[in-house]
Structure formats: C-alpha cells, structure tokens
Design a protein around this nucleic acid. Structure first.
Ligand SMILES: [Mn+2]
Ligand SMILES: [Mn+2]
Ligand SMILES: [Mn+2]
Ligand SMILES: [Mn+2]
Lengths: 219, 219
DNA sequence: TATTACTTTTAGACTAATCTAAAAATATAT
DNA sequence: ATATATTTTTAGATTAGTCTAAAAGTAATA
C-alpha cells in the first residue's frame, strides 16, 4: 500500500487544489508539508508512477481519480477521529488535530465505517469541517467569513479556516464557538477590525486577521 | 522519540524475557519479528545507545527500566484498543489484533488514559490478557492451561496463549470462549488429546496442541 | 581437546525519504 | 527581446531499517 508520507502528500495536494484552480505547484506543496521543493519533486515522480497524480515537468500536479479517493478517505478518517476524541474522550477542539494526523493513517474500511456508525454519522468535525461520507461525497459549506459581513448583518459561526491552538483558544475565550450568533455592530474602515455582539450579550472587538478565518452562515 | 520499529523491538524483547529467564537471544527476537539476526544486532546497538536495553556482545539483551516502561505502555495501548474495538465497534475477538498493532503506536498519555476511563478501566483484553494500569502494574494470571488439568477436574476459560485467527475461530465454533466452564471427562494417554464438557452441555474433543494454548482458572 | 555445529556480529549493499547546491526552465521586468 | 528573478528539477549525500554473505565467537560432541 501507500506509506504515511505518500498519504500526506496526497492530502496536501487535495487541499491545495481545492483552493486555487490549475495544477498545484511544487513550492506550495513543499510549504504546506514543511519540506523542500526537491523532496517534493522526488515524491511527485513516485506518485506519478503509481498513477495517483498527473504530472508534467514544470507544470504542477493534479490528483487522479484514485489519488483523490485516497486523499478523501484520509480526510474522512481524520475528521471522524477528531469527533471521537471530542465527543467520547472529552478532548477540547484545540487538542485533537495532531492526534488525528496520526490516527488518520490507520487503514481499515471496517474501522472507519464502524467508528462513523458509533458516532452516529456526524456531518461535521469539531472545527465545522464537513466529513466525507462512505462514498467520498463532501458537503462543503459556502465560504463566507465574518470579514465578509457588513454592518448590522447577522450570522452563526459554522467553522474555522485556521486550526492553530492559539486561534482556537482565542475563539473559545471570546465565546466564538460553533453555533455562536454574531451581529456586526461596527467596522473600522482603516484596518477592517470589527465590533460584534456575540450571542446577543457580549461585545467583542475582532481584528481582520481573526474575522477572515471564521466561517459564517448568514441569517 | 522512538520509532514504531524501535517500539516493536522493545515489545518483542519484553514478551520474550517474561518467557525464559536470562538475556533474550538475537535469534529469538529475529524470529518473533520476522526479520534477520543481522538486523536485530543493528537495532540492539541503537537501543543500547539510547539506554533502553543492556547489551554485551554475544550475551543477549535485557530491557532497562526505561525500556520496560515503554514496552509496557505499548502493551497497555494495544490491549485497550482491542477492548475498544470489541466493546464499542462490534469487532470480533479474532479481528482486532492487527489493527491494535497499528493503534498501539499512537503516543499520547491523555489519549490512553481517557480511553481507559471511557472503557471503564477494563482489567482484561478480549483474549483474557491483563491490561497494565496507568502506573504499569500488570496482573498476570497464573499459567495453567487446559492441558494441565487431570481427568474430572473443572475450570473456567480465562485466556488464550495463541492469537491466530484460525485458533480463535476454532474456539468460537466449539463455544470455548472467555468464561466457558470446562470439565475434563477423558484424556487419551497416547496423544494427550482430551474429551471435555463445555458449559455442562456440549461434549468436545480437543487436541493437545489446542488445549495447551487455553488458559484456565481451576474451580 | 579438537572438531563440528550453531549463533551472532560485521561488512557491504539496497530502498525510502530527506537535504544542499547547482543547473535548467519559466516568468517578470526593463 | 534581453536580462533578471523565481521556480523547478537534477546530482549527489545522508539516515533508518533492512538484507545477504562472510567472519568471528560460543556451544556441543566425539
Ligand atoms: Mn484537523
Ligand atoms: Mn478538524
Ligand atoms: Mn493482540
Ligand atoms: Mn489481545
């Protein structure tokens, strides 16, 4: 089968290709995996030999159908494990990502599907990211962030685009968790920072850096 | 930290040293890990440099305190995951070992301890093997097997010494699972095969090969 | 004790994944 | 279009873990 390393490359390519269209660049893969471009080129050749990516020198890569399937199944594993850790083992949402990075590579269809059933087929992980179903279908939610809201508009927090401990911690401390209701009360033109009301009670100031990473469903 | 490979060596050495006393031989490690003696020698040197084993050329190895702690913690992980798979995810006892071999290497004290709590601190795994507690204490049960019983003696199945799918399957088909009550009704002197009564109902013939792998608590 | 058998270690080679430094290709800017 | 900057690939090394074949050490046997 495929090594953990190969799987991590496939996952990275999958995520990068959903961001921008066209082939995924060597450098962007290197950056997202904290490795060097030369290492990426080597691995791409291997994945190409295995028919998991389409690759022409200097043109970037794209996943094949098979490559995409593997990537999605790993993401499915990752997000199911995150749900398990939070729902069943009392982990906080800022503690689960690194563990899920390891758990996602345990390859067993039965394990994944039984875990899914045990968790009662969750649709979203603890960060609001959609969980691919058994057949690999993903329900992406639209990409509206708090930064896109105008003054007086309202919304509900449905996800985060940034998964760092420090960001998640900051959110929790300001009560900006999944399901929180938000109303924009003011926007400073200079730096795009906002004043918002959380759950009709709390008034909070939030920087543009922070608001553009908070995924919102408009009300 | 230590690689999966290093951890598997430590676990193998731990299990082998509890079998026979004295240093564990290179060949026995090689056999139990399906590898070659030369590979074992290389790895032993590395573990010795890391102070996880004591080693003198040609004299076999023994785990240091630290090496033993690591081995026990991996065994703890392994057995807890097996319980999880059987109790929560509806796996059969003959399906869990290989998955646990992978899961045991996920290193997180919090994960292990929370899993333990979630499973309500089980004392034994699905094969009757004792689960080390948080501090590494193991409750080994005595090593009486069905083959040690005499005619008319009775006992309860509390574990298995052989974990192969084929053996576990055979046991299940003859109702010889954990908790089954057994009475020896006859022993053939020639090949040590037995006739036994299972749960006061079923009469079964069992070979010496099979009976000496079934751990029993005498009644 | 000498010879033979077995076990263990060493020497040298291979693969996967990585790196640095240099060369080649592509993109950007005058 | 030419020069410059950036990106990507190649060349060559390194490290972990493994292997085969041969050498060295230990054990068993006559
Ligand atoms: Mn994650
Ligand atoms: Mn997540
Ligand atoms: Mn097992
Ligand atoms: Mn077991």
């Amino acid at each position: 089968m495929n090594s953990f390393t190969e799987e991590n490359y496939l996952k990275a390519i999958f995520k990068l290709s959903s961001k921008n269209s066209g082939g995924v660049s060597t450098n962007s893969i290197a950056e997202s995996l904290n490795t060097k471009a030369s290492s990426v080129t080597d691995m791409i050749k291997k994945l190409s030999d295995k028919k998991l990516v389409n690759y022409k020198k200097y043109q970037g890569v794209n996943l094949t159908k098979k490559g995409k399937e593997i990537a999605v199944s790993i993401i499915r594993n990752h997000r199911l494990w995150e749900v398990f850790l939070v729902e069943k083992l009392n982990f906080k949402w800022d503690e689960v990502h690194d563990l899920a990075e390891d758990l996602e590579h345990i390859k067993s269809k039965k394990l994944t599907d039984q875990l899914d059933a045990f968790l009662e087929f969750p649709k979203y992980d603890p960060h609001g990211d959609p969980i691919p179903d058994k057949d690999g279908n993903i329900n992406r939610h639209q990409d509206i962030t708090l930064a896109d809201l105008k003054k007086k508009e309202q919304g509900v927090v449905v996800g985060v685009k940034e998964h760092s401990k420090s960001y998640l911690n900051y959110l929790e401390n300001t009560n900006l968790v999944l399901g929180s209701e938000i109303k924009v009360t003011d926007i400073i033109d200079f730096d795009k920072s906002m004043t918002i009301t959380v759950n009709k009670k709390q008034e909070v100031n939030i920087s543009n850096q922070a608001s553009k990473n908070l995924i919102i469903k408009k009300l």
